[in-house]
C-alpha cells in the first residue's frame, strides 16, 4: 500500500455563444449633460463582472475613462433585449452590441466637437482621458464635458447610439449535419499532477497548470478570477460532485453542503494560469467566451493522472475513492 503519483493532460476547445447562433443582444448608449455615459442593457451579471466589462468596452470605444460609464441593466422596462447570460455569450454578444452603440454615440460627440472647434469631425481623436483633440494639433482641444453641455443646451443634439449583435441562426442539414455552430472558439490545455492513496482510494490534486487561449483578456484581473474559479470547479466535478451518487439509482442524493461535497480551502491544488490571446475576428476587441471552457479540461486531465498513478481507468464521473478501490480490487483479481 502506497501513495502513488501520476500526471495527466487534456486539450480542448469551446464555442462562444449559443450553439447555431440566432441569439441577439442589443444595447443603447447615451450621454448625460456633463459627458458621462449610460449603457442600457438587459444582460444579467451573474457575479462574473459583466457590468464592469461592458463599462470598459464602452469607455474604450467612446474614448473616456471607465469611471465615466454607468451600466444600467436588467430592467425590462428600460433595457433592450438580450437573450441572456449563458453559453459563454455575455462578453461576446453584449460587448459587440455596446461597441456598435458606443461608436454611433461617439460619432455624434465628434460632430458636436467639430462644430465647437470649427474643424471636420474626421480630423478629431480622443485621448482616452476625456478630451477631444485635433489630430496633429493637440493644443486645439475640447473636453467631453464641454461637448456634452454644448450638445444638450446649445446644439440640440443627442449624443447617443443603438447597438445590436446577432449571428444569424444556422440550421443543421438533416442527413450530414452540415452546420455553423459558432464563429469562434476558446482553447485550453491542462496538466494535472495527483497523488492517489491505493489503500483509501483518495485522490489529492497537487498541481494544476492551465493554459487558456481566450481571444483577448479585456480585464486581466477579472479573467484571472473566472479562470481560477473554473479550474477549481473542474477538479470538483472530476472528484467530488453528483446529485445522484449511484446513478441511475435515484437514492442517496445530497440535499445540503454537508452531503453534497466539494473541495474546501484545504483541498485546493497549487493552481497556475497562463493566458494566450489570439483575437477572434468577430469578438469585441478580439474577446472570446472562456466562461464555460475553463472548467472542462481539468476533468479528463485528473482522470488521466489517476490512471498514470495507479493504472486503473475510471470512466465514470465522479472519480470517487469507492470507484478507485473497486477498480484496484478488480485489477488485483485479474
Amino acid at each position: 500500500m502506497a501513495i502513488r503519483r501520476g500526471r495527466g493532460v487534456a486539450a480542448i476547445n469551446y464555442p462562444t455563444g449559443m450553439n447555431l447562433g440566432g441569439d441577439p443582444t442589443q444595447a443603447l448608449v447615451h450621454s448625460t449633460p456633463t459627458g458621462n455615459f449610460m449603457v442600457t442593457l438587459s444582460s444579467v451579471d451573474l457575479g462574473q463582472g459583466l457590468k464592469q466589462i461592458m463599462a470598459q468596452i464602452c469607455a474604450e470605444t467612446i474614448g473616456v475613462p471607465t469611471d465615466r460609464v454607468t451600466i444600467d441593466t436588467a430592467d425590462t422596462d428600460t433595457g433592450p433585449h438580450c437573450m441572456g447570460t449563458f453559453a459563454s455569450r455575455g462578453t461576446h454578444r453584449a460587448g459587440n452590441a455596446v461597441i456598435q452603440a458606443a461608436k454611433e454615440a461617439r460619432q455624434v460627440m465628434l460632430e458636436v466637437a467639430a462644430e465647437e472647434l470649427e474643424v471636420n469631425a474626421s480630423d478629431l481623436e480622443t485621448d482616452g482621458q476625456g478630451n477631444i483633440l485635433v489630430k496633429g494639433a493637440p493644443q486645439k482641444s475640447i473636453s467631453i464635458f464641454d461637448v456634452a453641455l454644448s450638445a444638450h443646451f446649445k446644439r440640440g443634439r443627442s449624443i447617443s447610439g443603438r447597438g445590436m449583435f446577432l449571428i444569424p441562426r444556422s440550421y443543421p442539414e438533416k442527413e450530414t449535419g452540415a452546420m455553423k455552430p459558432s464563429t469562434c472558439y476558446a482553447h485550453a490545455c491542462t496538466v494535472v499532477e495527483v497523488e492517489v492513496d491505493d489503500e483509501t482510494g483518495e485522490v489529492t490534486v497537487l498541481t494544476v497548470k492551465n493554459v487558456f487561449e481566450i481571444g483577448r483578456a479585456l480585464n486581466p484581473k477579472m479573467v484571472e478570477q473566472q479562470l481560477v474559479g473554473g479550474s477549481w470547479m473542474g477538479i470538483s466535478h472530476a472528484l467530488y460532485e453528483t446529485t445522484e451518487p449511484y446513478y441511475p439509482n435515484r437514492d442517496h442524493g445530497g440535499t445540503d453542503f454537508n452531503q453534497y461535497l466539494m473541495p474546501g480551502p484545504g483541498d485546493l491544488a497549487q493552481t497556475e494560469i497562463i493566458v494566450l490571446e489570439r483575437p477572434s475576428a468577430d469578438g469585441p476587441y478580439g474577446a472570446k467566451g472562456p466562461g464555460e471552457m475553463c472548467a472542462n479540461p481539468q476533468i479528463p486531465a485528473v482522470a488521466n493522472a489517476v490512471f498514470d498513478a495507479v493504472g486503473v481507468r475510471i470512466d465514470t464521473l465522479p472519480i470517487t475513492p469507492e470507484r478507485i478501490l473497486r477498480a484496484l480490487k478488480a485489477q488485483a483479481a485479474n
Partner: peptide, 14 residues
Amino acid sequence: RGFGVTIGDFALEV
C-alpha cells in the same frame, strides 16, 4: 456550464 460539451470532453480526452 459547459452544456453539451463538458462530459464529451471528459470522454474524448480520456
